[in-house]
Design a binder for these strands. Sequence first.
DNA 1: GAGAAATGTAATCGCTGTTTACACTCCTCA
DNA 2: TGAGGAGTGTAAACAGCGATTACATTTCTC
Lengths: 219, 219
Amino acid sequence: MSEDQGKDRPSYHHGNLRQALIDAAVQLVEEDGPANVSVREVAKRAGVSPGAPFRHFSNKTALMTAVAEQAMARFRLEIVNAVEAVITDDPVDRFAAVGVAYLRWAIRNPTHFQIISTRSLIDWENSESLRRDNDAVRLLVEAAMLEARRRNLLQSNDIMETQIAARALVYGLARMYIDGHFAQWAIPGQTAEDTVQTVLKNYISSIRRAPITLPEETI
Amino acid sequence: MSEDQGKDRPSYHHGNLRQALIDAAVQLVEEDGPANVSVREVAKRAGVSPGAPFRHFSNKTALMTAVAEQAMARFRLEIVNAVEAVITDDPVDRFAAVGVAYLRWAIRNPTHFQIISTRSLIDWENSESLRRDNDAVRLLVEAAMLEARRRNLLQSNDIMETQIAARALVYGLARMYIDGHFAQWAIPGQTAEDTVQTVLKNYISSIRRAPITLPEETI
DNA sequence: GAGAAATGTAATCGCTGTTTACACTCCTCA
DNA sequence: TGAGGAGTGTAAACAGCGATTACATTTCTC
């Protein structure tokens, strides 16, 4: 959070209004959800007049895009850290670590995940920052998949399709959680996060090539 | 569409304003997306004053819920028809048919799918109709899964988890499409719909128990 | 046919995003 | 050092929004 969110400002100029507005918007997103953020309320929290934000953001979408960029940067950082924490050099394990961290972040930051995934409140196309961070995660996954294929660790050699399927599964789980579908799909005695991670774990097992074990009789 | 969307109305009373409002809302959803629907524009299209809709719907959410109910009914019908069109009595094929029809409908009715899946503009909890239609589809899938397990056609006997995984995959694919993620994930020479259906097909293959083929040498 | 119930209108409220004219402050350069 | 423009704030206004209220008209019911 930035220094002064309050009303009493020493000088006429704020000093760091742009970041203060982003911080206030982040706070509002967390309190009321992305759809209920208003520029006027953001301005009020930053202690400025309703028109002030438009000196720093051309419109509301630009402000929300800035919020998304900050969220996306944190998201990327968490994914990268998770992958680097993997001890073995098994690329499928690295791939799995991305999925685990992805779901973990989505579940713990549902409103921010919604902003960067739904993309209806932001200008995705024109944000270099968003695409760069998104590509970084995508390339991390792709590198793991390429190595996995090279080392013959996957059931299927079509890694593009494997990637899309895995991404769809993970994204679907995250969105089911965020959109409230797990009210109906809960497994008794498990939290939604447990369920989600279990499903992911078993999916990873299913795409990994089974070790070749000849039937005992033939030995 | 209903009869008179225009302004010139024979009598003071509309006659069937409730349905006319839903129709106008559906039209607006298709034109501008769910987020850009306004009650005032809906009223204008139905040829009534801005306050009139509130005689039939307690608020905007109630109107959008009625739109969602209509969309959900059509969605359910399409799924049921697709399953009944399956010729063999293989329950895994029935299961697959639900997925195919689900994705087909979502891709061809993206805005309506968004309304019933995101649930942010509607009152899901208090709509018996929505839950009934949703349960109908869910039970269709569950029946197929139970039969598949009974006939030992699945890799895993945990059908709850298999269902969640399959649902997550299908929902994830649908949402990736709707949220515009396929701009980055397209397979060259394939439409997004082709890709989506291919991924689904291969996933279904992977959950089906492989036929037991003994190694040739042992025969 | 009278009166109640249903369903329309018109006016209004407070909220929203955004723009415009204006005010203050800071930075730069002579 | 001091002038002036660039940057950044305010206040007031605009149209459009969801929603409510008072009132008008029609239809239903007995």
